[in-house]
Nucleic acid binder design. Sequence first.
DNA 1: TGTATTTTTCTTGTCGACAAATAAAATGCA
DNA 2: TGCATTTTATTTGTCGACAAGAAAAATACA
Lengths: 232, 232
Amino acid sequence: MTETDSLPERKRGSGVKMVYDLLRDEILDLKIAPGSPIDEVQLAERFKMSRTPIREALVRLAGEGLIETLPNRSTMVSNIDFMNLHTFFDALVLMYRVTTRLAAQSHRPEDLAVIRGFHEDYAAALSARNHIAMIATNAAFHAAIAEAGRNPYFTGLFRRLLDEGRRILQLYYQSYDEHFPQRFVDEHAAIIAAIEARDIEEADRLGKAHAEAIVAQVQKLFSRNDRLDIAL
Amino acid sequence: MTETDSLPERKRGSGVKMVYDLLRDEILDLKIAPGSPIDEVQLAERFKMSRTPIREALVRLAGEGLIETLPNRSTMVSNIDFMNLHTFFDALVLMYRVTTRLAAQSHRPEDLAVIRGFHEDYAAALSARNHIAMIATNAAFHAAIAEAGRNPYFTGLFRRLLDEGRRILQLYYQSYDEHFPQRFVDEHAAIIAAIEARDIEEADRLGKAHAEAIVAQVQKLFSRNDRLDIAL
DNA sequence: TGTATTTTTCTTGTCGACAAATAAAATGCA
DNA sequence: TGCATTTTATTTGTCGACAAGAAAAATACA
């Protein structure tokens, strides 16, 4: 796997960010399975740098709860907490509602252009049956709505939740294999309309319904496999 | 300042946590002013360890937004974002409401004992006019309520908000100098009663009112000093 | 004297090496 | 063979040193 550039010239300080970003994506896209061991030395030689910057990237990931560190022993990708899935979804639904409300209330015209952009990206990703792009653009779409609500704290919290949810959605989408429902695209369109009309209650209602529809399907999926895949 | 233990025997891995905890408290209790520079070398000799574990602690703090790092140049304690205070308070009020509601809904008898314990600690700290203890016990009180709601995600988010708010509350309490209002204690008692009665709507209402009362007073304080202390 | 350029200084970022801690393997013993 | 104990191996945590980058100081030049 020679996926690092050949020239050893690297800008001072860029290594940490590169390793962090890459590992983060690999974890959230399930390219590295939950529970997988992470070896500092291996990463160091893979990226052709010392263990120090690798370690810094790992400390950051641990701070976000994406990896877990057993003192003096090993570090591994965090497991998905299937036991408490519903608590995660409760938080997600709440944030969907709050951000959609705020967007309906405080958005500016230029925000809608950004939101529509991601909306189209999502539709395109769905047509192309590209799991990873669907998840990324869906998150970008909702994050853009949160941004339009103009509350940095909510936006920050929401982004964290969306990222955490990437792994779960990944499993969900993988189970489809074919034929994604067009419904999500339509719901997104309806949410945009409500925001543009500054109809706060309608936006809230749609955000809630949208989130709960997703939650219901994910829950249904996992209630089937609960006992089988408990390790993954 | 010889505040580190004399024996050089330190358990492997404990240094990072110690530095992290200590710096964190010093920052949140405003013992280190926002904007203050942080010198790795200085910390290293203060704690009699190498820069490596110091650095790891700083990376963690940076991950929480408590310090900011200028690439290749310097690192300093983050400034309090006075411009966006209201967005922080909106988030805080929401979390007060949500956690109080959930506690009223899902608490178990043993939770109430814990909550009451912190309630009494808070009352004692208020009588003793101990700013720092008041803030700590107040946060512990509300965190205990969140725990009783049995949603780890909400609890985690809420704790982060409460910690972030410690610096603001610190300024707020410092402005009192004397004579703290008994009202907060009474409001806490009312919240406990509503939770115990499992009266969700009342708990929500009280949580909202409690948060908004604090917010209103803090806002009033800062609208006075806004232009003066903008640097701090 | 005032400005541009070089030099110095100071802090961070990275490295290679070593020590501690734990798990795994090997050994001893009944 | 089965179990306890010692030895080895592997991985993490820590260290001291050095190099890069940027600001501050010093110098050159008009």
